[in-house]
Design a binder for these strands. Sequence first.
DNA 1: TTAACTGTTGATAC
DNA 2: AGTATCAACAGTTA
Length: 282
Amino acid sequence: MPELPEVETIKRRLKEVIPGKRITKVEVFKEKSFSGDLKQLINHTIVDVTRRAKMLNFHLDNDLHLLTHLKMTGQLIYVDGDQRIGGGHPTADWIEQLPGKHTRIHYIFSDNSQLFFNDMRIFGWMRLVDRQEVVRIESELGPDVNSPDFTLDYFVDKLRRRSQPIKLVIMDNAVVSGLGNIYACDTLNLARLSPFRAAKSLFANEVKNLFEAAKAIINKGIELGGTTFDGKYLDIHGLAGEYQGVALTYGRENLPCYNCGAPIKKVKLGGRGTYYCEVCQV
DNA sequence: TTAACTGTTGATAC
DNA sequence: AGTATCAACAGTTA
C-alpha cells in the first residue's frame, strides 16, 4: 500500500507523539515480521522518527535504528496512555480492535501508550539495525522524488540507458524513490506520457515534464495525507487519506480523463494494473 | 470453486 | 549493467 506520501504522513504523525517514549515491552506475534535483538530495545528511548524512500526509521538512544517497511499492507496504529485510538476522536470505519488478527508486533511504552504493527500479508518488516546497516540499505536507493537531490540532470542521465517502459523505470527505487503504482500512473497522466514509452526514447522536454509531474503528484499526495482504498492505508490515528478523491487515473477505469475526456483504460504492464488515457498520453 | 486481483520489493536467471 | 519473471502472503472480487 504505502508509497512515499503515506509513509511521510505516518512519519509526521509519529513525530508528534513518539520521540521521548521509552519502550518497556515488545510482543512479537509473527517472527517473520521482526529481526534483531529484542533486548536492545527494552528500556531504550526513541529519540527521533525519520523517513527515507518508503522506509521509516525510529532512532534509539543506544544508536540503534528500528527500520520499518510497510510493503503492501503494513500499518502502524498508536494508542494513547488512556487506551484510545485517535485521542478519542472519530476514526475510519475500517479500524479493528487491537491487538487484531493482523497485529504482528506490539510495543508498550513507559507511559502506557502503545504502538501496533499490523500487516495482513506479512510482507512488511521491522528490523533493529546499527547505523552502518542503515547507511548500507539507503545507499542502494535513488534519491527521494521530493528531495533536492533528485535533479533533472540526474534523471536525464538515469533514463538514457533504460529501454524498459517508462512506468517501470520511475517505479524503480534505484532510480528514484517514492513512486509506487498509484502515483506512477497519475504522474504519467499529468505529464501526458504513455506508460509504455521506452525510457530512453523520451525527448528532453518530455523528461522535464515527467520530472515536474512526479514532484507535483507526490507533493499533492503528501498534502492530502496519502491515498486510502478499502482502508488498507490508515495513519497512526486510524484516519484515511484524501488523495483518492483527486486521483487522475488510479481507480478510474472507464471514467473520463480530466484532460481530454476519453475513458481511462486499465491494462497490465510489468505485472501491475496500469491506468492511463490512450488518447492524450502518447 | 477457482482464478485473478491487490498499494512492494527481492531473488534469480539470462 | 539491464531485463524479465516469479515469489513472499492473505484476503477480496469476478
